[in-house]
Design a protein around this nucleic acid. Sequence first.
DNA 1: CGTATTTGACCCGCGC
DNA 2: GCGCGGGTCAAATACG
Length: 330
Amino acid sequence: MEFISLLNTSLDLNSKPLRLLEETPEMKHQVESCSLKLGVCSTVGVKQERCALIEEINRVNAENKKLSELLTVMCENYNELQRRLKEYQTIKNSESDLISRKRKLPAESTGINNFNHETNVIINGSCESSSSDEDSCKKPTEGEDNKGKIWRTCVRTEASDASLIVKDGYQWRKYGQKVTRDNPSPRAYYKCSYAPSCPVKKKVQRSIEDQTVLVATYEGKHNHPQPSKLEANSTPNRSSTLGNIQCSTSLSSSGPTVTLDLTVPKITSQDQATIMSKPMGKSVAPELRRQSLVEHMASTLTRDPNFKAAVAAAISGKFLQLNNTHTQKL
DNA sequence: CGTATTTGACCCGCGC
DNA sequence: GCGCGGGTCAAATACG
């Protein structure tokens, strides 16, 4: 529960109603005087109303408890993911050390793990580069002669997914498939089909160590912009991007819904720079880093007018709903 | 019917 | 020169 320790996650949705009846004598007095003023109301009616209110409070209390539990589970999941990411990064760092050492040695025929070039890794859409060039995420460094540039990406797929398709935003045409000697899974050969003159080729093969990992090896440099980016720029979407978080809003019969897609946190280089530029390096406590991340996320969310509107709509919708049920009871 | 994928044949470089 | 293995070609096939 380290995440919870950072923030007071208690929603305290019904602290006011509780105090209204139990804690503040002033308010209690007001309620009593109100009942006295009414006069005509029988004591039975007041009791009924009080019972209804207590029932309502209990209901909201239970809801608050449920939400708190939900939040606790979310925090636990978040911490677990953080822990796994840390583990993965440690493994990856030691691996890249090994690769850099291997580069000095003659290549061994160990399948896909003996490429003499950059290695980039994509985990559920987020890209992490283990190459020496930190800015090059799947793309060769600008200004270099990229004609013969080779780089590699790893993409984790569903275990049930048998296709050799790596979605990278470009259009590819498959022109061959071969089973290689050192890996029983077939290797697929693709050419960039977006521009006829584009010389880029890619090879896709499952990792010999982990069959759920697809290893894509790219060769050459695209002489055209990324098609998916062009589409994204030309077609306005209702869902908005909150910094690096995909966010969509919707209105349903049950009330307004705000959906935050936290499954694919695409951290852009700009976001990384923003986070990393904060005065904290590796020596700073992870709690502080997390806090900074939370602050960054919060500021990104509050800057987004769509998010504000959706939250406002959700809250007002909830109030209206509560109001309606209350008036129905009365 | 046009386009994409599949798959066997072929080409080419490399080591022996 | 021969065999092996990776890469590419192109006809056949599938698909929308």
